[in-house]
Amino acid sequence: MNGDTSPIRVAIVDDQELVRTGFHMVLDAEPGIEVVGEAGDGREAIRLAVEASVDVMLMDVRMPGMDGIAATAEVIATRSAPKVIVLTTFDLDEYAFAAIRAGASGFLLKDVRPQDLAAAIRAVHDGDAALSPRVTRRMIELFSTELPAPTDRPAAPSPIDALTPREREILVAIAEGLNNGELAGRFFLSESTVKTHVGHILTKLDARDRVHLVILAYEHGLMSSGPAGGRP
């Protein structure tokens, strides 16, 4: 948070009041996190994003009326857009992947442990992503059915060309689902150096976060050898 000591302002969006209350109680016990609002549907979520100065929004993906997919796209488009973490009851929920494609920065199951929920909120607030390697690989698999093969793309300048060879390697590893500690181990770098590289990659590719980097890596053919970069 770049030295900022203000609490992370969180909003909870879910059509079930009991779920909202449960998350609210969990987050009230976490230092440095403040719940600033709740919403029961997507339209209320958009209002909260505009009016409540939210940093991170927990967004239920399946709601009556405006669902979490449409709401995420609208929330991300607001002037002071919060980061969005989508919530789902089912692992590998394709509705949740659609919300991630719409701009969400993370994916959590509703039975997430309190400490993992708080860690995900802090990570997303700091520009990281709340995605496990398994979810990242499945996301790439789903996107690969929608994207043209790299050989079908006309030759054109690519933002990937602005990356150094090391930055390109790190981008591929991010798309495989590696976190900063794992990146440091693979490339024999300090975590602070890894964070610097990741920051440069985000800036050069004009990417909103690491989830966006995963999408860009696949769209530009860097993962054409298959999910997880061909690793077993």
Rank of each mutant, 00 (worst) to 15 (best):
E51I: 01
E30V: 15
E146S: 12
L109A: 06
A207W: 07
E94V: 14
S158W: 00
R186K: 15
H212L: 00
A184M: 09
P165W: 12
T89H: 02
A70Y: 00
D206E: 15
V84A: 10
V84H: 04
K195I: 00
L171I: 07
P7I: 01
P64I: 11
L87S: 05
L58W: 07
E219R: 15
A155I: 12
R62D: 02
L205H: 08
A104D: 11
G37N: 04
V56T: 10
L189Q: 09
D67E: 09
I121K: 10
G22Y: 10
G65A: 08
D28A: 13
T21G: 02
I201M: 07
D4Q: 12
Y95Q: 12
E51V: 09
I69K: 04
L216Y: 03
L189H: 04
S53A: 15
E51W: 05
R168K: 15
L171R: 06
A29W: 02
P133D: 06
A129Y: 10
H220I: 01
G181V: 08
V50F: 00
A155M: 11
R43S: 12
R231K: 13
E176L: 00
P154Y: 12
A77E: 13
A207M: 08
T196P: 00
P82A: 11
I100A: 11
G106D: 07
V50E: 15
Y95T: 01
D152T: 11
D28M: 11
I46T: 04
V10L: 03
L178K: 14
I160N: 05
A130F: 06
A184W: 07
A123S: 14
I12R: 06
L131R: 07
P31D: 15
A175Y: 02
G185D: 15
A71C: 03
L27R: 04
